[in-house]
Design a protein around this nucleic acid. Structure first.
Length: 239
DNA sequence: AATGCGATTCTCT
DNA sequence: GAGAATCGCATTT
């Protein structure tokens, strides 16, 4: 079983740590999304370097894609990084709570990107760090909830319950969603608009060999408003 | 395992 | 002022 509950063969074996350079990103988002499967996202965090093997991505093809933030050429403060050169990070905030990370595709001025939806820890040290960030986040959330509850009840100074044991569900679903992987890898707005082809703190490397037959396609998630584009098979998953 | 629901704040109109 | 490229928890199967 992989950490996210699926069987990923060869996951901790034969990793290639060579960094991905500019030319890798100079293609369209569909091609980039396929090529990113099996690659490793590396992030320098307060707890050390975290490395995640990318196992699911989605393509956002830009101005003609009704599912994309840049549909119709929408260029705002938020979407600006999507217009930057291939290999740029695009971190956006969603549902009042979560960050999601994309890697842009293509030349400067063409707003395409690949949403990173799932990673597996690439080594034991990374797994341990991911668990710590997830637990920390869980504690923060619970503390905030307790505080609100206490305030509405007129109480004050109530302490939150400490999470002592790691819930099995957390280990199984460590980074198997775009919001969760950002928590697990400590990716925040501070990591927005970074050139991942150049950065020493946030970048990508070659990872594991992936046969084409191990990549499944599916519909993109959470874009019900995108009409016909909601049905495009622009999600790529490693099996 | 599957389903339903509330959370919480940024962004753009 | 509305809605969002989602998640965790509770409840039920």
């Amino acid at each position: 079983m992989g950490i996210n509950g699926r069987n990923i063969q060869g996951l901790f074996l034969s990793e290639n740590q060579k960094r991905l350079t500019r030319e890798f990103f100079l293609t369209d988002a569909l091609e980039l999304s396929r090529r990113l499967i099996g690659k490793i996202m590396v992030h320098e965090t307060p707890l050390g370097e975290v490395r995640g093997i990318i196992t699911e991505t989605e393509a956002y093809m830009g101005v003609e894609d009704k599912g994309s933030h840049t549909y119709g050429g929408r260029r705002t403060e938020r979407t600006e990084p999507m217009f930057h050169i291939g290999g740029t990070s695009y971190v956006y905030f969603i549902y009042g709570m979560y960050n999601c990370v994309n890697v842009t595709a293509g030349v400067d001025g063409i707003p395409m990107a690949s949403l990173i939806r799932m990673v597996e820890p690439a080594d034991e040290a990374s797994r341990s760090i991911m668990e710590r960030f997830r637990i920390e986040d869980m504690q923060r959330r619970r503390a905030a909830r307790e505080k609100r509850k206490a305030e509405s009840a007129g109480d004050s100074g109530k302490s939150a319950a400490v999470v002592e044991k790691i819930p099995a569900s957390l280990k199984k679903h460590l980074a198997d969603g775009p919001g969760k992987l950002c928590i697990a890898m400590h990716i925040t707005k501070a990591d927005n608009d970074i050139d991942m082809a150049e950065s020493r703190k946030f970048y990508l490397t070659e990872g594991i060999e992936v046969e084409e037959s191990r990549i499944l396609t599916g519909k993109r998630i959470g874009i019900d408003y995108a009409e016909e584009a909601a049905d495009y098979l622009w999600r790529f998953t490693l099996i």
